[in-house]
């Protein structure tokens, strides 16, 4: 019988490698249709990884919203515009330098983060102990739900405000378009 902690680490590594491979594909591919489909595969891999990381609610949302709705939005935009990408001239050096510097700074900044998967990290020891409080306070066994809807309800209200605003923006932009089409 394999040690479950070891199995989790091995699966995480394998999925991270797959994610890296899909990312290289997205960076290198020319043609927007292929890039969008690869992005859907990337989101599904990410959702699988979230299941391994015990974030089941996030995995479900990522699979439905990230891989589903955003792919549909991208395909709709491609239908209204064009799937061809200009092969154009190379502008490679400056972006590569910016990316490399950002990566170096991030690796330096994250070098003293706690080890992956260990239980004695500040994130688990400090802060509000939602795991202990959830059941007596709210009676909901799924702690993510109780934090989202009860303890951080105002966060969720703000989120709906943002989505509402974005929806109004999309409607206004698309209405002007159809109005111009008629006149």
């Amino acid at each position: 019988m394999m040690d479950p902690a070891f199995a989790e680490q091995a699966i995480t590594l394998v999925i991270l490698l797959l994610l890296a491979a899909v990312t290289v594909g997205i960076v290198r591919v020319r043609g927007l249709f292929a890039a969008v489909v690869l992005l859907g595969a990337y989101s599904f891999l990410m959702a699988t990884l979230f299941v391994v990381l015990d974030a089941v609610d996030v995995a479900m949302t990522e699979a439905s919203v990230g891989a589903g709705i955003s792919t549909v939005l991208f395909l709709g935009a491609l239908y209204l515009t064009d799937t061809k990408e200009a092969t154009g001239k190379a502008r490679e050096l400056a972006p590569l330098a910016v990316a490399a510097i950002t990566a170096a700074v991030l690796i330096w900044g994250m070098s003293d983060l706690p080890e992956f998967g260990s239980a004695d990290q500040p994130i688990h020891a400090k802060g509000a102990d939602y795991l202990a409080r959830s059941l007596p306070d709210t009676g909901i066994p799924n702690v993510v739900t109780s934090v989202l809807a009860s303890y951080r309800g105002f966060d969720t209200l703000g989120e709906t405000t943002v989505v509402f605003t974005a929806g109004i923006g999309v409607l206004v932009l698309l209405r002007r378009r159809s109005g111009q089409g008629k006149s």
Partner: peptide
């Protein structure tokens, strides 16, 4: 697992789809 990052990221995913649509 710690539930707090999950809640924050749930919010982030939904806000992300809003900005993407716009």
């Amino acid at each position: 697992a710690n539930p707090l990052p999950h809640v924050l990221i749930l919010t982030a995913i939904v806000v992300g789809i809003g900005t993407l649509a716009l």
